[in-house]
């Protein structure tokens, strides 16, 4: 099939960028969306034009690297699917496809469809962990964990940190991402020890990165490739509320050494 692509091209972070139209010819339905872009890029390079820069790595929907908004929906709008797993059989011959990068102040565009998502890393660095050093940990079965708790924690932990939730949110809010990590750890006994400190530290970092706020539209949940539930945002709100009431935030995160 043949398609018309309108792709965001932007030389670097300071360039303004624009949509450029390309023809994608002889696309096979079994190709993934990124393989379709590979084909377009090969042709561009043959013509001496610089290929479209886009992030991808594992191409099996788990690393969270690939990130593009296809026709107004992050990852292309197939339920529970990253764009690398979105196949061309879901498009029709003659379709016009608009491809843009994630758009958020906290995710500046580096080039074309490539964005800088290090703000997510900084949120985790602020408190998205359990403060245990290597070694000296008790036996794995020392603390029984109810199966349902482990399952809920796993539902939250499935987040791949791709940032689609931010891209889809009308406010570019990172709440679903933060909620996933806070809930993952708060549902396990090992993570409960420092739950208050974690919630406050991560929210403070999230705020300082320039993400927007949650207005409960549900768009994040709808585009999340791992279908992380909006309920975790409720849990995050709960965790944060309890945390600021208890006011257990210490001056500085201790640990290390």
């Amino acid at each position: 099939m043949n398609l018309t692509l309108k792709v965001w091209r932007q030389k670097n972070a300071s360039d303004t960028g624009r949509l450029v139209t390309y023809e994608a010819k002889n696309i096979i339905p079994d190709m993934s969306f990124l393989e379709m872009l590979d084909v377009v890029n090969e042709e561009l390079m043959q013509k001496g034009e610089e290929p479209i820069a886009f992030d991808s790595d594992c191409r099996e929907g788990i690393c969270g690297t690939c990130s593009m908004v296809v026709n107004g929906t992050p990852h292309g709008g197939m339920k529970g699917t990253t764009v690398c797993q979105c196949h061309m059989r879901h498009f029709k011959d003659g379709d016009v496809i608009i491809i843009e990068p994630w758009r958020a102040r906290a995710f500046p565009v580096l080039r074309d469809l490539v964005t800088d998502r290090s703000s997510f890393d900084r949120i985790i660095q602020a408190g998205g962990f359990v403060s245990v050093n290597t070694g000296g940990t008790p036996d794995g079965n020392a603390i029984p964990v109810p199966k349902t708790d482990a399952d809920v924690a796993m539902d939250a932990a499935a987040c791949i940190g791709c940032g689609a939730c931010v891209a889809a949110c009308k406010n570019a809010s990172a709440m679903l991402f933060v909620a996933a990590k806070v809930s993952h750890l708060a549902n396990l006994p090992q993570g409960r020890v420092e739950r208050e400190r974690r919630a406050i530290a991560m929210i403070n970092q999230m705020d300082s990165e320039g993400f927007g706020n949650c207005t409960v539209t549900g768009s994040c949940e709808a585009v999340c490739p791992k279908e992380v539930s909006l309920d975790f945002i409720a849990q995050l709100n709960r965790e944060y509320g309890k945390a600021i009431l208890k006011n257990r935030m210490e001056r500085k995160l201790a640990g290390g050494g």
């Binding site: 359990v130 245990v132 794995g140 603390i143 482990a150 090992q190």
Partner: peptide
Amino acid sequence: DQCVAQGVPF
């Protein structure tokens, strides 16, 4: 043991 302590949801 280490991974459980870190909060890996086995």
